[in-house]
Nucleic acid binder design. Structure first.
Length: 475
DNA sequence: TGAGAGTCAATAAT
DNA sequence: ATTATTGACTCTCA
């Protein structure tokens, strides 16, 4: 073996980097697809790669995502935020240019990244793109160029309109005489965007605490009583549930990164005692979890977390028939009397009513996590991928300190890395899939398939890579 | 049919 | 001018 392998820590560079390089041909060959694990429908054909994608890799972003080792989403967003602010680059530009997302989405993503293992393939894409961008030595420069170009275009437009000239305005359609445009001419062809009043939100939150998954009937009731469209109530629950979940993920990430000094760890760990048979699950005990530092987010504790608060304070009274109570004091329609608002307030929050009596082992309002259906479990497999910094971190990059200009480029790869890195990255990748398939066997058929596919990809990659550098990979 | 994941896009806040 | 929030969509999946 060439080179002392040394720890794995810093060695595990990035797969992204590997791919990112002009790797001549990673084309497996021209032959049609070859046997085995046939990917369902996915793969090619997706014309979704109009973005820069940092150059010219032969692999599509999706392939990269599929091969990517576990990324530290939190760390990535942190760095991206720094680079952007340090260089006065906005989210809009970054989002549209690099990620292909709108400003709002970018803001959300940067502020509340979900942990890698809780992301779907699609959800991982932006993070891979961000990592790719961070690795690009010219990332900032390129964006700045874009910015300049936009400005130029903007100026130009303005000029032409001010100084007359009917040049480019296409026919009709648009905004010809924009400016003076009064904000109301276009009749309400655009629906007005519903904005829930604070009282309504409160009521919905209360309803959520009693029943996170209201039945259609309950939803109907809520809608009627709050004077909202049914779909609005449904949407609200969908959104609220998923946003609460996200909020919890964040806690997980932060707690993980700071409490557990060393290793990467990564959120997962707790509560994976699903145990056999998949069902009973009546529940975990209260899991006293007492987060070391007393409490979670102190500062905010606002809306979302407020509802999710886990004050296990004792014997909360049995909740009523769902809806009802929640509606108390909610007086939608026209306006709201300050009074009712206050009223409801004090009692609505501050305590997480538990619903003990009701039948069905529903989840408690507060901590609905963990037990949640679906993929919540998915991730626990990430284990061995140990190094949180896998693709991510590494490399130097000081946080804000020196106020120099454009040097924040974190480029990891400026220096032609040695082959060992590649080896390592693949190793980690492999490890990942392996772990994924081995842990938690049941519900595996799908997982196995995925793993098989991953291995297949790895295999091909290895083949291609070995052509330019003899390295031995261990499998 | 309904849940969750991702996003969009209007509009609130800074 | 940017960034943050959030109701509504679009897709998948089961």
């Amino acid at each position: 073996a060439p080179e002392s392998p040394m720890s794995s820590s810093e060695s595990v560079k990035s797969l992204t980097e590997l791919v990112q390089q002009p790797c001549p041909a990673i084309e497996t060959s021209k032959d049609g697809k070859s046997q085995e694990s046939s990917e369902p429908p996915a793969s090619e054909s997706q014309s979704t790669t109009p973005l820069p994608l940092s150059g010219h890799s032969a692999l599509s972003i999706q392939e990269l995502v599929a091969m990517s080792p576990e990324l530290d989403t939190y760390g990535i967003t942190k760095r991206v935020k720094e680079v952007l602010t340090d260089n006065n680059l906005g989210q809009r530009l970054f989002g549209e240019t690099i990620l292909g997302l709108t400003q709002g989405s970018v803001s959300d993503l940067l502020a509340r990244p979900k942990p890698w293992h809780k992301l779907s393939l699609k959800g991982r894409e932006p993070f891979v793109r961000m990592q790719l961008w961070l690795n690009d030595p010219n990332n900032v420069e390129k964006l700045m160029d874009m910015k300049r170009m936009e400005k130029k275009a903007y100026m130009k437009r303005r000029h032409s309109s001010v100084s007359d000239s009917q040049s480019c305005e296409s026919s009709s359609a648009g905004i010809d005489y924009s400016q003076g445009a009064s904000p109301q001419p276009q009749h309400q062809l655009k629906k007005p965007r519903v904005v829930l009043a604070p009282e309504e939100k409160e009521a919905l939150k209360r309803a959520y605490q009693q029943k996170p998954y209201p039945s259609p009937k309950t939803i109907e009731e809520l809608a009627t009583q709050l004077n909202l469209k049914t779909s609005t109530v449904i949407n609200w629950f969908h959104n609220y549930r998923s946003r609460i979940r996200r909020e919890l993920f964040i806690e997980e990430i932060q707690a993980g990164s700071q409490s557990q000094g060393g290793s990467s760890d990564s959120p997962s760990a707790r509560s994976s005692r699903a145990a056999h048979s998949s069902e009973g699950d009546s529940c975990d005990g209260v899991d006293a979890e007492g987060p070391p530092d007393g409490k979670a987010s102190g500062p905010e504790a606002d809306e979302l977390s407020g509802a999710a608060a886990k004050s296990q304070g004792g014997p909360a009274e049995p909740a009523l028939e769902a809806g009802e109570e929640a509606l108390r004091g909610a007086r939608p329609s026209e306006r709201a009397e300050p009074e009712s608002l206050e009223d409801t307030d004090d009692e609505g929050r501050l305590r997480a009513p538990r619903q003990s009596s009701p039948p069905a082992p529903q989840q408690r309002p507060g901590d609905a996590l963990e037990t949640l259906p679906n993929s919540a479990t998915e991730g626990d497999a990430s284990t061995s991928a140990a190094s949180t910094s896998v693709l991510t971190g590494e490399s130097s990059y000081k946080s804000k300190e020196s106020s120099e200009r454009i040097s924040s480029v974190p480029s990891t790869s400026s220096t032609p890395a040695a082959g060992s890195q590649k080896a390592n990255s693949l190793q980690s990748l492999f490890g990942f899939s392996e772990a994924a398939s081995s842990r938690n066997t049941r519900d595996s058929s799908l997982r196995k398939k995925k793993a098989a596919n991953l291995n297949n990809i790895i295999h091909r990659l290895e083949k291609a890579a070995s052509r330019e550098e003899a390295v031995e990979w261990e499998f």
